[in-house]
């Protein structure tokens, strides 16, 4: 049974002058433990889709089901990680990572201890009583990962979580996130516009076309790459072949867009 199921989800935004369809007829299902990337040109509604899955936005059409239950508000088994860390500058690292537990009323001793263990796992135990402004961008994003994992979600939604980081930090963090999620057996959906990142991290890549956002194609990442850490996967010969394939499809989407515009 699929963990997450989307049934012809659509989203239309209304303004005084127009109605814009951001997403149309998105159906997909994701099994537990899978890592799926959603790839697409900017403005294809990737982040909107993630907000819908997170339960922050109720779709104008279709439905989202987790374990066969309809999601229409933030689900306790789904964690959401944003483009930037958005750690609260007025809270210490300790208070930041336990925020979710506090809000979900799970702040028992065990849960808090588990959060601290996670912080130790990613090598930032010494920052507990520091403030976010005292940490580097990469460290802050790692803390944000701990904050998301602290409530022990089954599925993680990652909204371009590495896009604000420098290249080196980004590569290191990809490895860390990938191995941490695998170790804890988490399901994950990553939204990105970086083809390499999508291939290196995931089991499936879903390509969205834009205006309105629709599923254009779904790729399976070769077994040879799946088992490797993102950094190693990037070095593998199969990587560039897959990259080429997805690249061409993306070109396709752009061409279609152009034709639509000119016709």
């Amino acid at each position: 049974m699929a963990f997450l199921q989307l049934k012809s989800v659509g989203q239309t935004y209304f303004s005084k002058t127009s109605a814009t369809t951001a997403l149309e007829d998105i159906s997909l299902s994701i099994n537990e433990g899978e890592f799926t990337s959603i790839l697409g040109p900017s403005g294809c509604g990737k982040s909107t889709l993630l907000s819908i899955i997170a339960g922050l936005l109720v779709p104008t059409a279709g439905s989202v089901m987790v374990n066969n239950q309809t999601v229409n508000q933030p689900h306790p088994k789904i964690g959401y990680m944003l483009q930037q860390d958005y750690l609260f500058p007025w809270k210490t690292i300790e208070d930041n990572i336990t925020l979710g537990l506090k809000l979900r009323n799970q702040n028992s001793k065990e849960h808090i201890q588990a959060a601290f263990r996670l912080l130790k796992e990613i090598g930032l135990e010494h920052t507990k009583s520091k403030y976010p402004s005292e940490l580097s961008g990469g460290m802050r994003q790692r803390v944000a990962l701990v904050r998301t994992l602290a409530t022990q979600p089954k599925m993680l939604l990652l909204d371009e979580p590495f896009s604000a980081l420098d290249y080196q930090t980004k590569l290191k963090l990809e490895d860390l996130v990938s191995s941490t999620l695998k170790e804890h057996g988490k399901t994950a959906i990553l939204v990105t516009h970086d083809i390499g990142e999508a291939i290196a991290m995931s089991d499936h890549v879903i390509l969205l076309s834009s205006n309105p956002g629709r599923i254009f194609r779904t790729f399976k990442i070769p077994e040879t790459l799946k088992s490797l850490l993102p950094f190693e996967a990037r070095q593998h010969p199969d990587f560039s072949a897959t990259f080429q394939q997805i690249w061409e499809e993306l070109e396709h989407i752009e061409q279609n867009d152009h034709e639509q515009e000119t016709s």
């Binding site: 959401y80 483009q83 925020l99």
Partner: peptide
């Protein structure tokens, strides 16, 4: 106030 901070709290069911 940056909406994304609110989004963090809401994603935790706040």
């Amino acid at each position: 106030v940056d909406e994304n901070y609110v989004k963090v709290v809401r994603s935790f069911g706040g």
